[in-house]
Design a protein around this nucleic acid. Structure first.
Lengths: 259, 259
DNA sequence: TTTCGAGGCA
DNA sequence: TGCCTCGAAA
């Protein structure tokens, strides 16, 4: 059986909010290393990969591998019932029909409990190769969100260009064009505002802004976001969570005419 | 003639907001004890009963009984013109064609005045028997609103079950099931958060969540809400206002198959 | 599809 | 209290 107690229900809420527009139904794969999720969006352009390690829970117990096939819309409805500092416990039997969510509010004597029916989901498990990226950019997640939102007003696509000068987000649209340049900088005072660029080779790729804007819904999960780019491979957008848990998005670049 | 001065126009605004989706047209019955309203919703499942005692006004003058038949949609439009701390004075002749609303903003020297045409409304006056309820639950109105909202995401109906252990709101739906348990508790520190359960007999009844959610629009009128239940009689949902004025909703339980 | 209003969250 | 997001109506 699975029994996983998450001190802050908020975490799961934010994760699900960030991915529910990309993926409708998906498996939460539970085993003794934690809870993982991997799914492609409907148009097979983007991939979401979440890992919540056992350390994110206390306690965490999962006797054997369980795949919980959940409709994220239903999960969202239930998670909406979580109040800000509720403690969430996920429970499931070994061959479950439902997953059970219990919200405890330590202050009031309020316990709410929900069962969500599970579904069988055929999941092609994708091995994601560990790639050495030509460029890695780490920046404050609100900054990235802002850039994507601003540029999406002008165009469908953005080019991300990393060079030793910095990183440049640029787009052209009917009403004009726009670009945002960030130079790498590290300030001890404000480590949250650092922009770190790690470059082995200059790279320039173009991506759909619609997807990037979508990924940015995860901004609340982490102060920083890491963008990893290499020519002709999908962009990795990573939000690190506590205890080496993470939420990652992969997005295939636009090629040639698509741009 | 009627002349009733309400220090806070907001009060009437909130009352009308809370009932306008249930009732389109209704009489405001004015007499020397105050202003009362009683109306069934269109489907005759719910009943609204409001009482604003003379003490809620200063001054209050009403020489003889007057029934002001008002379209609540029109009243809403006019009340929307009220600013947050406007003082509202209602005026009507003895055999009125219109009711006159005057908004005064004490700070600025701003006076606005509206007339709403009245209508003749046949009103069956329902004697509501004073019932001894098997169970009375008093809880913070935002909590009740929250529960109704959360559960309405899952189902059309909620069962409310009062026992000596506490009160349990539960529902089943297509995507799963949910329940919220509250234990009675009284804390001197946080009297607003108290959940008080007064029980002569356990009771379990099922109600339409759509209506309950609607009633909860009155949450802004009072910190607390009182639920009174007995088998086979309508649920009473009461919001107490200052000086023993009140806004009450009655809702017939669902029976048998309906659940 | 676009706009407006209402409700929820910070 | 103000902002933002979601849902409903045009």
């Amino acid at each position: 059986m699975l029994e996983a107690r998450l001190e802050q229900a908020d975490l799961l809420k934010k994760v699900v909010d960030a991915i529910k527009d990309l993926v409708q139904d998906c498996n939460f794969d539970c085993n003794d290393s934690g809870i993982a999720l991997q799914a492609m969006d409907n148009s097979h352009v983007a991939l979401v990969s979440m890992m919540l390690k056992t350390e994110a829970f206390s306690p965490f117990r999962c006797d054997r591998n369980i795949a919980l096939g959940i409709n994220l819309g239903s999960l969202t409805k239930v998670l909406r019932a979580a109040q800000s500092n509720d403690i969430l416990t996920l429970k499931a039997e070994d061959a479950p029909d439902v997953v059970n969510l219990v919200f405890e509010n330590s202050e009031s004597d309020r316990i709410s409990e929900y069962d969500i029916k599970l579904m069988d989901i055929d999941q092609e498990h994708l091995g994601i190769p560990e790639t050495e990226y030509a460029a890695t950019v780490s920046l404050p997640s609100p900054e990235f969100q802002r850039i994507c939102r601003d540029l999406s007003a002008l165009s469908e696509s953005v080019s991300i260009e990393c060079s030793k000068e910095g990183v440049k987000f640029a787009c052209q649209g009917d009403i004009g064009s726009g670009s945002v340049h960030l130079r790498g900088n590290t300030s001890v005072d404000n480590p949250e505002k650092n922009v770190e660029i790690d470059l082995t080779e200059p790279v320039s790729l173009t991506f759909s802004l619609k997807y990037l804007v979508n990924f940015c819904k995860a901004s609340g999960l982490s102060k920083n976001v890491k963008l990893c780019l290499s020519s002709e491979v999908p962009l990795l957008v990573e939000y690190s969570l506590a205890s080496s848990s993470y939420l990652r998005f992969y997005l295939a670049p636009k090629i040639g005419d698509e741009e």
